[in-house]
Amino acid sequence: MRHQLSFTCEGDTLAATLDEAPGSTGLLIVSGGNEIRSGAHRGMAMLAARIAEAGYPVFRFDRRGIGDSEGANGGFESSGPDIAAAVAAFREAAPQVARIVAFGNCDAGSALLLHQPLALDALILANPWTYDGEQADSTDEPALPPASAIRARYWSRLKDPASLLRLIKGEIDFRKLLRGLSALKQAPQPAVTDSLAYRLDSTLAELLCPVTILLAIGDRTAQAFIESCGPSLAYIEKNPCTIRIERLASTSHSFAGDDADWLAAQILTALAA
């Protein structure tokens, strides 16, 4: 059964939804960008119903200044108190829950890392946002993918006779081509110590709780995360620890359509661990 409820965070009233289930492990869904708790095209609401049907209670909420919640929207970098208050409200609304796993896509995943320590038992981070100076959005992506992704894309096209034929026939937009080729000159740069990518990477290295990282490898935000945190990811994959990395051959930033089955399966695996 689904219930609407509210809780307070630093004097503001926040709106939340609980999908009831008997399990002692619960899922906290943290929304990314300025997305309301139901998600784009009700994606998070449908995910919550699916997870609850499998026996795990699910708690979703609108952070301050979003959707039905009061207060000012300070973005994901100031959402630590919202998440902490949601964890406490979840435990109060579902007292049988002894273990809480939090899921966040895009900058919601970044927020779950940035605001550690939180009273959570495990994290599921999907396509974490690593761009500095930009506000993540639930549907929009950065104007260009990272240079490494562009290099791979154009190299594959240069080897494709059909693409060369389209170029000769004038069927390719030269402005887009030149824009993409300009990115090939960009050498990968190590993350500077005050950058978002560096802070996320540093937190990952120090976390003690289990973490699952989900990456849609055709998604620009995921590509940027892979480029920024590449050495750490390579080390993790060669030296299994408390961090699990799962990759999906998809361009869907929010795991829409058929990708929703894969996302739900990964979340259920983390909940059952």
Rank of each mutant, 00 (worst) to 15 (best):
76 F>G: 12
101 V>D: 09
130 T>K: 02
180 G>D: 15
113 L>S: 05
147 A>S: 11
151 R>L: 11
142 P>A: 06
113 L>T: 09
202 S>L: 08
168 I>M: 13
104 G>W: 08
113 L>C: 07
94 A>G: 00
87 V>I: 13
86 A>H: 00
111 A>L: 06
141 E>H: 11
95 P>A: 06
177 L>V: 14
157 R>T: 12
186 Q>F: 07
95 P>Y: 05
88 A>R: 07
183 A>R: 13
149 A>I: 01
171 E>P: 05
187 A>N: 01
79 S>C: 11
198 Y>C: 08
132 D>N: 03
124 I>N: 09
181 L>P: 14
70 E>Y: 03
197 A>V: 04
130 T>Y: 06
167 L>M: 15
133 G>H: 03
76 F>I: 09
191 A>L: 07
147 A>R: 08
171 E>Y: 12
195 S>Y: 01
127 N>C: 02
194 D>C: 02
197 A>D: 02
81 P>N: 00
104 G>V: 10
87 V>C: 10
194 D>L: 02
133 G>L: 04
85 A>V: 06
174 F>C: 08
127 N>E: 01
172 I>W: 09
78 S>V: 13
79 S>D: 12
113 L>W: 05
159 K>F: 10
77 E>R: 07
160 D>V: 00
84 A>N: 03
161 P>D: 09
202 S>K: 13
155 W>S: 14
207 L>W: 10
145 P>I: 06
70 E>K: 01
107 D>G: 03
129 W>M: 05
164 L>Y: 09
163 S>F: 14
111 A>G: 07
80 G>F: 01
72 A>Q: 10
82 D>S: 03
171 E>Q: 12
121 D>F: 08
155 W>D: 15
104 G>L: 05
185 K>Q: 12
207 L>Q: 12
109 G>R: 00
101 V>K: 08
169 K>N: 11
140 D>V: 14
153 R>D: 15
143 A>M: 15
207 L>F: 04
202 S>D: 08
194 D>Y: 02
150 I>D: 03
192 V>N: 08
202 S>M: 06
124 I>C: 12
163 S>H: 14
102 A>V: 03
74 G>S: 08
